[in-house]
Design a protein around this nucleic acid. Structure first.
Lengths: 117, 117
DNA sequence: TTATCGTATGAATAATTGTTCATATATTCA
DNA sequence: TGAATATATGAACAATTATTCATACGATAA
């Protein structure tokens, strides 16, 4: 009546040891979470082309100034964008080259997904 | 009394033309959204080491079998993992090499962020 | 100073989503 | 067939979150 269990305890404990800390995995997930919103992705996509001020981004993304400002704060906290102030305006740009790389790879993943149908 | 506006209409319309379609941007954001959850990131991280069955993943991630099964469905739909059935067990693995690349870059972004403090 | 422009922010609301619990399906072994 | 194992799934609940609205803050020009 007793059946053999499938769980590979040796494999499981080995992987548990190798795995990064929960904190690091949380932070990594956090970066993706911030990139995982259409409005923020539009912002990223626009900033790939040029430094832009808040009003311009709102125009380009068909969003309100307020919505964009809120989302820019999220992107700023995740260190995905940086900004400089010039008079009344605040000019935003991508923080480092990782962002564009992440964007390109995800785009490639999507496009290859379409091919395989 | 009229002040000069900052909006650069030429720049805005140019970028609007260059930008990818809303559909593509939505799909790209969707990939990141799926990666943007701690549980799913733990799953990815474990699968980077080895093909694993559902029970093993639950053990490794300290989650329930049900929670993992639900999340694996999300990962499957996003084509981030694939699986094969062998008897009672279902063995899951990463779908393509993009996933590990995305993971590595995000990790690097985090780690460099820590250095800059 | 006053009016205007650009941006930021707090509160409220609506929508999305991850987990739990119970249960169903499927496979293997006695 | 019946019991045990592995996985999947639907419903419900709690928590998170993106947007809107109103308003505040800061800078500039008249």
């Amino acid at each position: 009546m007793e059946q053999e269990k499938i769980v590979d305890l040796e494999k499981v404990t080995k992987i548990k040891k190798i795995m990064p800390s929960d904190d690091l995995l949380f932070d990594i997930a956090e970066v993706f979470k911030v990139l995982g919103d259409t409005t923020r992705m539009k912002i990223i996509s626009a900033l790939l082309e040029s430094e832009l001020c808040v009003g311009d981004i709102a125009e380009i993304t068909n969003s309100t100034q307020s919505a964009i400002s809120h989302q820019l704060r999220v992107l700023k906290q995740a260190k995905l964008v940086k900004f400089r102030k010039e008079g009344k305006a605040a000019y935003y740009s991508l923080d480092d080259e990782h962002i564009s790389t992440l964007y390109e790879i995800a785009k490639k993943h999507i496009e290859e997904g379409y091919e395989h149908r």
